[in-house]
Simulated scan of single mutants.
Amino acid sequence: MKAKLLAAAAAISMLAGSVAVAQDAGAGKPVDMVLLPKYLGIIVFDQANNGAQEAAAELKNERPLQFLGPTPENSVAGQIEIVTNATTQGVGAIMISNNSGDQIAPAAKAAHDKGIKVVTWDSPIPSAEGEDVFVAQVDFDETGRVLADMALKILGEAGGEFAILSGSADAANQNAWIKSMNEVLKSDPKFASLKLVDTVYGNDQAETSYNLALALVDKHPNLKLIVAPTTVGAPSAAKALQDEGLCEKIKVTGLGVPSEMLSYTQNGCAPEFALWSFKDLGYLAYQTAYALATGTVKAEEGAVVKAGRLGDRAITKDPTREKGLRILMGPFSLYNAENVEAAAKE
């Protein structure tokens, strides 16, 4: 009996060992990979690159990660050009934070047809054409409710007029969040006092967003809040209101980086805002793309990516897109005067 138990234990041990080997089989394989943000010069995309570099080191990929991006002024054409060039070079995987809507789909499909793994992160390809899987920072439907909840909390039961200051009109993620927020406002009676009066696009350029915030104030004399679902728009709008001495009358909320929102939260211009970890997002995007490129995981519903310190992440259908697949990261973090200073130091 004892011999049988020992044999069974040995078999289980061997099986566990084989599973571990299978899970790590891709580690150490050289894969040329490109991380493509919407554009360069934005702190959250630098944080995503740091996370991707961390994953690259853990996976022992000897090929250096290419962090390539266009300028904000040339984002759409620039992203398409970078994907096309990477395809010509024959890289193993391209990770895209899409700022080009479906305009990038033909280039992504051309890459995919050549066997290159295409993973989107932060912002997907709306049609999912040419895309293996989207690494979503948070649930997009949840984003709309979080934005609506912050708006109601800041304005109170009396509510009032608010406007949205977004990034690019072609950014799939921001468009989805705005759509979700509008649906929440219409479907939930508790938001009946909130009135959306305008939506403008600052193309994630600080000066443009700053000027648009002031234009919203001039255009809507009863405006009480600017909601900016973009980490460039939120501090730009808050600075504009601060410079004009309007923080007592009009507030800002949305998505922001704690270190950039610190002073505006402390002085009351932006009482509350939200975000997630872009470092973790870059880390998860790299883990996913590398697993696909090395063949350890297939881009199909039910497959599981073993994502290092972030644990197992399942590939599921994307509930916000008819044909897309998704890996969900999460969660949201909410920041206010009580926790923003500590978060800004991280």
Rank of each mutant, 00 (worst) to 15 (best):
L6Q: 08
M14E: 13
A16L: 12
A25T: 11
V34L: 10
K38S: 01
F45W: 10
Q47I: 07
G51K: 04
E58S: 05
E62S: 14
E62Y: 07
F67H: 01
P70T: 01
E73C: 02
V76S: 02
I82H: 05
N98H: 07
D102P: 03
W121S: 00
A128D: 00
V138P: 02
D141I: 08
A148N: 03
I154G: 03
G160K: 05
F162R: 06
F162Q: 09
A171H: 09
N173G: 14
S180L: 00
N182F: 00
N182C: 09
P189C: 01
A192P: 08
L196D: 02
V200I: 05
V200F: 05
E207P: 02
L214Q: 08
I226N: 05
T231I: 12
P235E: 05
A238H: 01
C247Q: 13
I250G: 05
Q266A: 11
P271D: 07
A274D: 04
K279P: 06
K279S: 12
A285V: 01
Y286S: 03
A299Q: 09
A303M: 14
K306E: 14
L310T: 09
L310G: 07
K317S: 15
P319K: 14
R321M: 15
L328R: 10
A344D: 11
E346P: 01
